[in-house]
């Protein structure tokens, strides 16, 4: 598979097109490389087919899918908060957490269905169950969750069936955690380089981001004296989100790049500011009405921006063949030299 690297004399270069010439010039100035070698260094020189992407970028629409991720995260964590608050007798927090979780669950289903190429066929999602498909498993998480959380919020609003309400809340809470974290698997289980590389981190990023959003929203809506658990969950979620996101942004070499650059970089920097400010404000002023509202809004905004940023970073990494070719070349070179996948330059 890699004769071209090891065999001298195969110095073929693309003959036409300005990009190729530019690249050749740069190469010549740099002293030239031995023929056939594919460079994968500083400026990330690599070969591609007229600069065209190798993989197809996701066809998922924005804002549908980032919003779905945000709402799913907020709904999941607040459903857990609702169930626990119910069991520890915090009626106002219970009610508000149920509203957040039920409303967000129903809205997230709407966004998910709207994103389908054939929305009228959304029930085909439940035709089979496939552990190899995060979207299939996700559908089987989302369907009972949104039914339970939506129904719980509805009876809460109407004031009917208190027993059923508690049962529905517990069912929703059971599916809440998986709902908030499976979306990390959904993104990571693709060939999109910047998502796949961070496949162990993304579920934590999304789960923690969901806690920050759910904690923030319920904290902003609930009376100060009942909202203690929300404040704690929001601050912990924000801290974990920042830490996990830091790993995603720094640990993966070239495929971490899209998280810093362009639109994704701007979104994620804004997300970090919002999340950090929201967490700090929660600690400082979370026990005052205005402080709780502003901090909660900041945390939710940070969570939302994180989803948009991660989404955009993945799209950028799919559109540029560099992020597909260079890591795979490094992997091949490492395998050939029989050592860890770092490349000798």
């Amino acid at each position: 598979m890699t004769e071209g690297i090891t065999t001298p004399g195969a110095g073929w270069r693309r003959a036409d097109g300005p990009p190729a010439q530019k690249r050749q010039k740069r190469r010549r100035r740099g002293g030239g490389r031995p023929g056939g070698e594919v460079a994968m260094v500083e400026e990330a020189e690599f070969t591609s087919y007229y600069g065209r992407p190798i993989i197809k970028p996701p066809v998922w629409k924005t804002p549908d899918v980032p919003l779905y991720l945000f709402l799913g995260g907020a709904a999941g964590s607040s459903s857990i908060m609702a169930a626990l608050a119910d069991l520890t007798d915090r009626p106002a927090l219970t009610r508000n957490a149920r509203y957040v979780s039920g409303g967000a669950a129903i809205a997230s289903v709407v966004f998910l269905v709207h994103d389908l190429g054939r929305p009228e066929r959304f029930l085909h999602m439940l035709r089979v169950i496939k552990p190899t498909s995060p979207l299939s498993i996700g559908s089987y998480i989302l369907a009972p969750f949104s039914a339970a959380a939506g129904a719980t919020a509805a009876v809460e609003l109407l004031g009917w069936f208190p027993r059923l309400k508690r049962f529905g809340g517990v069912v929703a809470a059971l599916f809440g955690g998986p709902l908030a974290t499976y979306t990390g698997v959904l993104f990571a289980n693709t060939a999109v380089p910047s998502w796949h590389a961070a496949h162990k981190e993304l579920p934590f990023v999304f789960g923690a981001s969901g806690m920050a959003a759910g904690g923030g929203l319920t904290m902003a809506l609930s009376p100060i004296d009942e909202a203690g658990p929300s404040r704690k969950m929001a601050v912990a979620g924000a801290a974990i989100e920042l830490a996990a996101m830091h790993r995603v942004e720094t640990e993966f070499g070239i495929v971490s790049e899209p998280y810093h650059e362009g639109r994704a970089g701007r979104l994620l920097r804004a997300a970090k500011s919002c999340t950090a400010a929201g967490a700090a404000l929660t600690v400082v002023a979370g026990r005052r009405r205005a402080g709780a509202v502003v901090a909660g809004a900041l945390l939710a905004a940070g969570s939302l921006l994180t989803r948009f940023g991660v989404f955009e970073a993945g799209m950028a990494s799919a559109r540029d063949p560099k992020y597909t070719v260079v890591p795979q070349r490094e992997r091949l070179a490492a395998r050939e030299n029989g050592h860890a996948p770092t490349i000798t330059r």
């Binding site: 197809k56 066809v59 998922w60 389908l116 190429g117 066929r121 959304f122 085909h124 498909s133 999109v192």
Partner: peptide
């Protein structure tokens, strides 16, 4: 059967 979820694409 396909409902256009688009997951196969990326």
């Amino acid at each position: 059967i396909c409902n256009g979820c688009g997951y196969c694409v990326p």
